[in-house]
Amino acid sequence: MIEISHLTKRYGALTAVDDISFNVEAGQVLGFLGPNGAGKSTTMKMITGFLSPTAGSIRVCGHDVEREPIAAKSCMGYLPEGAPSYAEMSVRAFLNFIADVRGLSAQRRRARLDDVIERLGLAGVLEQVIETLSKGFRRRVGLAQALLHDPQVLILDETTDGLDPNQKHEVRTLINAMSKDKIIVISTHILEEVDAVCNRAIIIASGKILADDTPQALAARAPSGRLDDVFRQITTGAKPAREKEVAHA
């Protein structure tokens, strides 16, 4: 469970995240939506303990991220934006390093490595150096790293950004397969993704939560029934486009 209360992050005069509060329960796949610069990544960086909040608190699996960072980080898997990794390592060495740091026992490590390698189709590139991999494979290595310890909470920042349609489909299938008992938070600005994998969506702009509902309920707010229109309407205050309304009618 993730409990966020009155979370605020300021950079000088700029308020990137402005007093937001929400909880996420097990079994929820939360789509975190918003235009660029809305505060999505900043919020995720605070949940995962990379940035310290200016005010407010975050609890993950019952552990306060600021006060018990190691316990909180242990129950989370995180794929940062752009899937950073150690470019000069082979995929196998990199995953072994993560397993070391995560403190997996020899037996568990073998089982978990086999599992993520199979799920993400990495068997063919295990000995390859990460910097020689395509963007899609690098993203998969990042996901493998986040899933390795089978975390209760999964935080994915723009995971499918820049992937081709097939790769996007694979990642979504993977998320759907895992979503039953975990908490998954995905930030994205691709709205079809929310329809495909999420059972809850939060729209955030200028650091404030503007909407929090199921994707279906959100989409129903626009006369066209399309999430795109709701998103534009909510984040810019624009009226729904006339012709779409007619088309829908």
């Binding site: 303990g49 190691i70 316990a71 980080k73 995180y78 950073p84 990794s85 790293q145």
Partner: peptide, 14 residues
Amino acid sequence: KSGSIELLMTLPVT
């Protein structure tokens, strides 16, 4: 530079 610091500092290490 490479952003891997974000990975390292969000792993359970002090």
